[in-house]
Amino acid sequence: MAIRQLSVFVENKQGSLHNITDAIANAGINLRSMCVADTSNYGIVRIIADDPEGAKELLDKDGQAANVRLVNAFAVPDKPGGLASVLRLLEGNGVNIEYMYALITSESGKAYSVMRTGDTEETDRILVANGIELLDESKLH
């Protein structure tokens, strides 16, 4: 079960991030997690929010480059080696991870991660088949 992620292509300059988060907040959309990838010229802001499509529509109207796609989100035991075991599993199955970031929840004892791989569906299948706990969007909000 993959979850939806909003990503926005922004300028690498002061205020870019604030503008995005402001716009989303003004629409009453709640952010759950966020990660910024930056290069010297631009950044990509990746956001898990409770209404990614609504947020994209808002940004589209403003002429911004926004995209909603599915990413894998899963839980691992909050202990040393918890994440490594999942990554080892994926690597063993030839899954290429493009990026990954942590998702913070109030639930203790577990750590949540979001990742984009070369093949989201296949990754989902592998995680399910190996009993890794997945996050669905209903659990997030």
Partner: peptide, 11 residues
């Protein structure tokens, strides 16, 4: 970049 050309990937 045109908005529709953006697909979330740096690559």
């Amino acid at each position: 970049l045109r908005p529709e050309q953006f697909d979330d990937s740096v690559k």
